[in-house]
């Protein structure tokens, strides 16, 4: 495993200073925004820098679904599995995406381009079924549109 550069993490810390226990979750969010996931070396370093126990950071990182401890795709595809999307064919979309990317939910493509997840309602039920890629929404998704949507992300 190659060593992870701690520099960006230190910069996040400096930006947020002072970081105490109560800011542990925003800290992890910013670290994930920076690295794309939560590298172990970074969490251990943050622990010694902030005094927030490593066990605590690990407990949070595994409790909240948003966090990844493994290296993640550059883009995150989230398929909504809310009720509306469910009744309007989320499964078909899911299958189409699985086929397109060759991975299932919770997995990352070999080229680390995409990670695939499902998500509870994204609150865009009127456009169900809905897919999010990173922070972008795609409504009324059709299996045929999947390839087109994915091609917009490198």
């Amino acid at each position: 495993m190659t060593a992870v550069d701690l520099g960006p993490a230190r910069a996040v810390l400096e930006d947020m200073a002072p970081v105490d226990h109560g800011l542990a979750i925003p800290l992890l969010q910013n670290i994930q925004d920076t690295y794309g996931y939560l590298p172990r070396e970074v969490l251990l370093d943050l622990s010694s820098e902030t005094g927030i126990p490593a066990s605590h950071l690990f407990g949070l990182a595994t409790f909240y679904a948003q966090f990844y401890l493994e290296e993640h795709g550059r883009h995150t595809v989230r398929v909504c599995r809310g009720t509306a999307c469910h009744v309007r064919g989320r499964k078909i979309i899911q299958e189409a995406i699985d086929d397109e990317l060759g991975i299932g939910p919770g997995e990352t493509t070999e080229d680390r381009r995409f990670s695939l997840e499902t998500v509870a309602c994204v609150g865009t039920c009127f456009l169900a079924p809905v897919v999010m890629v990173d922070h972008d929404y795609f409504g009324n998704v059709d299996p045929k549109k999947v390839g087109e949507i994915m091609s917009g992300y490198e």
Binding site: D20, H21, G22, L23, A24, I25, P26, L28, Q29, I52, H56, G59, L60, F63, Y64, A65, Q66, F67, V119, A120
Partner: peptide, 25 residues
Amino acid sequence: VREGAGAFVCGEETAMIASLEGERG
């Protein structure tokens, strides 16, 4: 502003407080 981190339970008020305090929700 605090962003949730992907835990449905944090909509429950005491779980939300735990989350704001930096705890598992």
